Simulated assay, not measured.
Amino acid sequence: MDPSHSINQPPGSSNSSEKSGMPEAPPPAYQHNPAVYPPTFLNQPVPQGPYTQGPYPGQPVVTVQPAVFVTAAPLANPVPDYLAYSIFTMLCCCLPLGIAALIYSISTRDANFAGQRELAEKNSKTALTLNHLGLGIGLVIIVLIIISQIVILSVR
């Protein structure tokens, strides 16, 4: 082992006066260019003005189309929603069918407000059908309860 070598120095760095086989070029000169960001490239034209931006070399240019917002207006002649009928069916006749009819009635009201006539008509028809069915089932149950009470009281 060579005593002139230190443990902390890598091999080959013992003689600083030796030069590697590569020619040493001076560093590039400083270019002061504060007005343009990003820095200019030699083969690219520089856009003029303080706020212009351009693509980097090799970067594809993407054109973005403007967003289109479509707003729907409420219907001029809204479809009936049968909300009161649904609440009556739910509270007085048949709870499960009344709840389903209430949901379709609210959906009809939302479709009327959003301007969707076809959806409003479909939901309105379903709500009316469920209301009629719930009212019929509720009336049949009430009549059966009344008849059974009359029969039970007449037997005593």
Rank of each mutant, 00 (worst) to 15 (best):
M90G: 03
P55F: 00
I103L: 14
P26M: 13
V64C: 02
L42D: 10
R109G: 07
A120G: 04
T63F: 00
C93H: 14
T40V: 13
I146T: 04
A72V: 08
I7A: 11
V79T: 11
L91C: 01
G54L: 01
E121V: 10
K125Y: 08
G138L: 03
A29G: 10
Q44K: 13
P74H: 06
L97G: 11
P26V: 11
Q65D: 13
T63K: 00
N77D: 11
A111Y: 05
S4W: 07
I7Y: 09
N123R: 07
S14Q: 11
N123L: 05
P50R: 14
S124F: 02
S14R: 11
A25G: 08
V61I: 10
P11R: 14
P50T: 15
I106K: 11
H5W: 13
I147M: 06
E18I: 08
I87L: 08
V62N: 05
V68K: 15
L83D: 02
A120C: 04
E118I: 12
S105I: 01
P47E: 14
V70E: 14
A100H: 08
P38S: 03
T126C: 03
L91I: 02
E118T: 15
S6K: 15
G134I: 02
K19T: 10
T108E: 01
L91Q: 12
A111M: 06
A111E: 03
I141R: 09
L95S: 04
F41Y: 15
K19F: 12
N15G: 03
D2F: 10
V140R: 05
M90C: 05
N43W: 06
A29S: 14
G49Y: 07
N131P: 00
L139T: 04
G12E: 04
V70W: 13
P66T: 10
P34C: 04
I87D: 04
N123G: 07
Y37T: 15
L130C: 05
H5A: 11
P57N: 09
Q59G: 00
C92P: 00
P45Q: 07
H32S: 12
K122H: 10
Y56Q: 00
C93S: 09
G134M: 02
P50E: 15
I7M: 14
F88C: 06
S124N: 03
A84T: 08
V61Q: 00
Q65I: 06
Q65V: 08
V70R: 15
V62R: 04
T40L: 09
A111R: 02
T108P: 01
T108K: 01
P57E: 04
S105R: 01
T52S: 15
L130S: 03
A120H: 02
I7Q: 14
V62K: 06
R109K: 12
I103K: 14
S6A: 13
P55A: 01
P38R: 03
F69L: 15
C93G: 03
F113M: 07
L119H: 06
D81P: 01
R109W: 04
V70S: 13
L135W: 13
G58K: 03
I146Q: 06
G98S: 10
M22S: 11
M22K: 11
A127W: 07
T63L: 00
A73Q: 15
I106R: 09
D110T: 14
L83H: 06
T89Y: 00
S124L: 04
I141E: 04
P57G: 04
